[in-house]
Design a protein around this nucleic acid. Structure first.
Length: 93
DNA sequence: CACATGACCTAAC
DNA sequence: TGTTAGGCCATGT
């Protein structure tokens, strides 16, 4: 399976796939990983435009404040929260 | 090419 | 501590 899109998106998606189970990365971290620490916004965009939601753990990407951020893939932010809680990454209380 | 959009971040009040 | 304003980047129209 090969992801297709802009270089930026491919880099972001690749980083997302590097996120292991039970771990979360901030948009800023991803931005830094691809060499553009200030592109946190564009990173979020790439996640939102990810072509294969089940193939990319976009739900493991959260804000630097500890917030969830969003989830345009499926179910919405609620589904993302549920997934994070299920992976014990997000406090259920 | 210019404008508008978005799941952001930091600083200031 | 909570809210507001400005900046920053990539993409689509």
């Amino acid at each position: 399976m090969k992801l297709v899109g802009t270089e930026f998106q491919v880099k972001v998606w690749s980083e997302l796939q590097k996120i292991p189970y039970g771990e979360v990365r901030t948009y800023k971290q991803i931005a830094e990983s691809i060499g553009s620490p200030k592109s946190s916004r564009a990173v979020a965009n790439a996640c939102a435009k990810n072509p294969h939601p089940p193939l990319i753990p976009c739900h493991r990407v959260v804000r630097s404040d500890g917030g969830l951020g969003g989830y345009s893939a499926h179910g919405g932010t609620s589904e993302k929260m549920k997934l994070l809680i299920k992976e014990s990454v997000f406090p259920s209380d």
